[in-house]
Design a binder for these strands. Sequence first.
DNA 1: TCTTCGTATGTCAACGGTGACATACTCCAA
DNA 2: TTGGAGTATGTCACCGTTGACATACGAAGA
Lengths: 328, 328
Amino acid sequence: MSTMREVAALAGVSAKTVSRVMNDDRYVSDDVRRRVQQAIQELQYVPNTLARTFRSGRDAAIGIAVPDISDPFFATVTQAVERIARARKTAVFVTSLGNDPLDERPGVEALLGRQVAGLISTPISADQSYLKRWQARTAMVFIDRSPTNITADSVVEDDHGGACTATEHLLEHGHRRIGFIGDAVSVATTARRLAGYRAALAGAGIAEDPDLIVLGATTAHEAAAAARHLLGQAQPPTALFSSNARSSIAVVPALQAIGRTDIAFISFGDFPLADALNPTLSVVDQDPNSVGQVAANRLFERMDQPTKRLKRKLVLPVVLVPRASCCS
Amino acid sequence: MSTMREVAALAGVSAKTVSRVMNDDRYVSDDVRRRVQQAIQELQYVPNTLARTFRSGRDAAIGIAVPDISDPFFATVTQAVERIARARKTAVFVTSLGNDPLDERPGVEALLGRQVAGLISTPISADQSYLKRWQARTAMVFIDRSPTNITADSVVEDDHGGACTATEHLLEHGHRRIGFIGDAVSVATTARRLAGYRAALAGAGIAEDPDLIVLGATTAHEAAAAARHLLGQAQPPTALFSSNARSSIAVVPALQAIGRTDIAFISFGDFPLADALNPTLSVVDQDPNSVGQVAANRLFERMDQPTKRLKRKLVLPVVLVPRASCCS
DNA sequence: TCTTCGTATGTCAACGGTGACATACTCCAA
DNA sequence: TTGGAGTATGTCACCGTTGACATACGAAGA
């Protein structure tokens, strides 16, 4: 690995001049430029990004931290962010945080400590105040969930509204006992979706039955077990609402296994092949593509104009996509 | 953002001593350690990872570059790598390269230029020689495809064998006209899978019909079109073989749309819900989890013992998972 | 009492670029 | 002929941390 000084020595110029050539500075004569480029070629010189970033104090890259890349929602969000960043020739580094609140901070700070110019992150823990000290340095936008104990941009979906609409839809189809499957209530989105579900029930004057609500189904295995448990009760629900796509993907085979694909089912969160299942699965589409796009655009806006005043919280609408599974 | 010197000044010691405290050096008195820790607390000091990495020349993190994170195969590979890295307290940075060969090098070098200690990458272009100069510095393992013009570790699946087995399976079920849907042949895996398909046909003494082979179906849209095209021919195939999961995910709804779910279909590459479709979809399981695990373990092995001699190419077996779609 | 050793701390330079500033040369208008 | 203005190049310090090395002290052994 050769350095600028070595290139400079070979080309018979100063390191600074090599730096100028690398950065397309106007003030370099054609002759010198040629010699330097030849030396670069000869030594296979590649600039040390780290040194540059270190000196300037700011990397050109941005980072995105999500709970789980293999979750179709976050995969699509990430893809959208990458698309926008690519158009701006900005590198994107993705990191998975997992679902343990304790892993959030080290994961996010691994990104921040490398001086990324911007950060898109998903709050996992119940406290993002540790990010305050980074705000002056790094633009940040939160996605999917609003951050706690810090004022910052966030792009979230209308969880309450979506869950409410879905539940109302099931109510309209005559269902009175609607099961709810969700992961931890400590996850803000889950809490809001549960609230939406409750609001719809309340709106229809139906008393909530705690036996119909299963929370804490974090893994695929747990989600499947939750579905079996709900349907195995003495007074089983006639419809199910799954509060996230990951769970839904596990619930579908579980329903098939017990031969209960007849039950009405709506998933919060669309996913590949939901429309190819039998019956096709009704979903609340969160439009992850828009989430990524809006978040990335906002991030770049903040990076370009740090002082501009903008609305902090962007709530994207979600839309119920009724397919066969809720209208039998 | 405070620096070590500021912490040092507040604690009344030298910067080096703060460095010692940060690195749990043995030779620090309890008194000093306490004072320094208090100063760190007070100033909310967070070390500058970049400066440390720059000085030491090597980041603790590793990088992984894949064509597309939303591809279930690569998502699972990445997840496995992250799991192993997490156990070693190593941060992982993921980056998507896309499918354009020209994007490979900048994407990978963005990672390398930040001095990652190790790299797991997927060859996109037909030439990885540009990575030679990095080899002395950075351990690297290639996944899914073997690299070209460079000697390095790779973890690949048995593409030829898997495609051959799948095709033979279809032949055994009496199919004589088997359609092949794949992306660009410039993608090494596709080329090998096509070769496996051909080998099986040849083994059965069946002449290859070029009309049954559609290549270049890179996007979901193209894959769906390919399926429609194949089945719309005068002499349509009675079975289909899709050479990757991404395509398969697009082909399934296309078959449903034209009411041809009766056709025998095998996908190279399993994906979520393949076993929940109607009919359940037969696949060649590439075991992405093992790919990620093996690649990560090999990478850490290389990082720990750069001189050790190890077998360069690891070919993981794939297994045909026959489900309903090929045995009707 | 004088080494020697282990412990505890400090000094300085260096990692590889680049920003601030200096220098030197050419050209042209006053 | 002089003095800008514009062009082309160089010098030097610095970003924050840490490795190499120096120093200082107390304790233990000769």
